[in-house]
Amino acid sequence: MKWFISHETIRSPFLKTLEKDCGEKISHCYQCGKCSAGCPISYQMDYLPNQIIRMVQLGMEEQVLSSKTIWLCASCLTCTSRCPRQINVAEIMDYLRRRAYTKHMTPPGEIEVPLFNKIFLRNIELHGRLFELGLIGMFNLLSGKFFKDVALAPRMFLKRKIGLFPHKINNSKEVKEIFKKSGKLGRARRDKLWQPKLLFLNLSRKLIERIERLK
């Protein structure tokens, strides 16, 4: 990690807008590192959660929003529940994801995460509750990993973890109303689910794997 920042970075409004938008006092963080210590995903992250917080404190917006970490966060809330300064780290990660998404700063390797989120929301909007098979099917189709986890399907089906048809809820109209009203989230629906870049990436990855296996 090598960055060069100036006093303009530090005085940038990034920290203040973030604190205002999500109501979390990030400037309270004293970098004890307890969030990173307990994070189950940290081994996959490019920056540890505490480093993300520090970068936010110093106004390093570009570096934060293009990091993998914010997309890898599983929102398990271990960090939030353990923070001695009462900072909701998971909430901040969520905020950063939304900001990165609206600013189109998602790193190319992590496009699958927002895609999954979008399909999930679409799914909820249509059925009022999660239709697992639809979610899995759509995700596999749109991400180009067509046969991902297919072998698990019969067992999941027998254990009644997934069903063939969606379960409807009573007032699905109201859910749609909620989606309509929740501006930012509603926008996710209108965005195209079709991600040719991702599809190409995953298909070419698979091809390379095949070739390597042939060797």
Binding site: M1, W3, I5, S6, N50
Partner: peptide, 30 residues
Amino acid sequence: RGRVSRIFEKGGKLIVRGADTLSGAQIEIK
């Protein structure tokens, strides 16, 4: 968090070069 390595004058301001070891960033402040 870090010590300052250099201070020099430029355009009527003091340029302070230091580092923040918590983020690993080098810092320059006018």
